[in-house]
Design a protein around this nucleic acid. Structure first.
Length: 292
DNA sequence: AACCGGACCTGTATGC
DNA sequence: TGCATACAGGTCCGGT
């Protein structure tokens, strides 16, 4: 579910509530060891008493940075969800871990109890997500194996093009590869390729610099608009306050069935499998000049 | 090394 | 209605 815009929306939603908050204790849910990088007792012991300084995002990873530079790392996988709730409310189904916190900031009255405590819980139906405590070195290593942030102004089109042009793989698979560009998933890859007029099956080593410029620019435009719309809710995605996104109403082709008319030229759209994921493209707006 | 397909999970939609 | 199958926003691993 969550790609860069969804994770960024969650970060922005939680930051004003969690910065300065202290973790009082961790609550054990259904299958914590499926989600945690460390065994439950280790995790519970080490997270207790820590104060959150800031919330960071790198690609699709969210991190709570503590005062000693250690971080609580959260990846939401496919169906991961963070929810604010009252401390005494029972943990819902598929809730694996919850943190009891106290914050110096005013919180919605619906989540805070008389003693100023509230709970942040992690739910994940499919359990593809991961949570763990990282040392500063772990965090640096994680960040290093990820590609650049697409919205980082330091990233320029020639650098992006250089990353792609030596590869034999298809452009859609490359966009999903987090070590080439961080944070892009199936929805925004399809949308950006459509906006850039590049076919998902196009081989990376046939892309011109000007096509890479168009693609980077399309990625930025799609991701920025999606953040402004607070993400895309197809089914499960909610921010930490339970609100859906609105970008699903602006999607051009993601999820469209084969033969649906292209929103730009009315040519029947095609569906295909790329990089193990289903993809939609317009054969006219995204001409395939060179296949495998 | 780079690349691809399958595995990991559960829930839901679709078809017979 | 009941059952089987396909598919879903992600990543990792093993084989080629």
């Amino acid at each position: 579910m969550p790609e860069l815009p969804e994770v960024e929306t969650i970060r922005r939603t939680l930051a004003p509530l969690l910065c300065g908050a202290t973790v009082l204790t961790a609550l054990r849910g259904e299958h914590p060891d499926d989600i945690l990088l460390d065994p439950w007792p280790t995790f519970a012991r080490h997270v207790r008493g820590r104060q959150i300084i800031t919330l960071e995002r790198r690609g699709k990873y969210l991190a709570f940075r503590f005062s000693d530079e250690r971080r609580l790392l959260i990846h939401l996988g496919m169906t991961g969800e963070l929810q604010l709730s009252q401390p005494d409310s029972p943990l819902p189904r598929h809730c694996h871990i919850a943190l009891v916190l106290r914050s110096p900031h005013p919180l919605p009255a619906t989540v805070i109890d008389r003693r100023g405590r509230f709970v942040l819980r992690y739910r994940d139906t499919r359990r593809f997500g991961r949570i763990g405590l990282l040392t500063p070195e772990d965090w640096a290593a994680l960040s290093q194996r990820l590609g650049p942030e697409p919205l980082d102004p330091e990233l320029d089109a020639p650098t992006f093009w250089q990353q792609l042009v030596h590869r034999h793989t298809r452009i859609k698979a490359a966009l999903l590869n987090q070590s080439l560009i961080a944070g892009v998933g199936n929805i925004y890859a399809d949308e950006a390729l459509f906006q850039a007029g590049i076919h998902p099956l196009r081989r990376c080593d046939t892309l011109t610099l000007s096509e890479a410029e168009r693609l980077l620019s399309a990625l930025r435009s799609v991701l920025t608009a999606a953040i402004e719309s607070r993400g895309t809710t197809i089914r499960d995605y909610r921010d930490a306050q339970g609100r859906t996104g609105r970008y699903q109403f602006q999607l051009q082709i993601y999820g469209q069935q084969a033969n649906t008319p292209c929103p730009r030229c009315r040519t029947p759209l095609e569906r295909m499998r790329v990089g193990g994921r289903s993809s939609t493209a317009c054969p006219r707006c995204q001409p395939l000049l060179c296949t495998v």
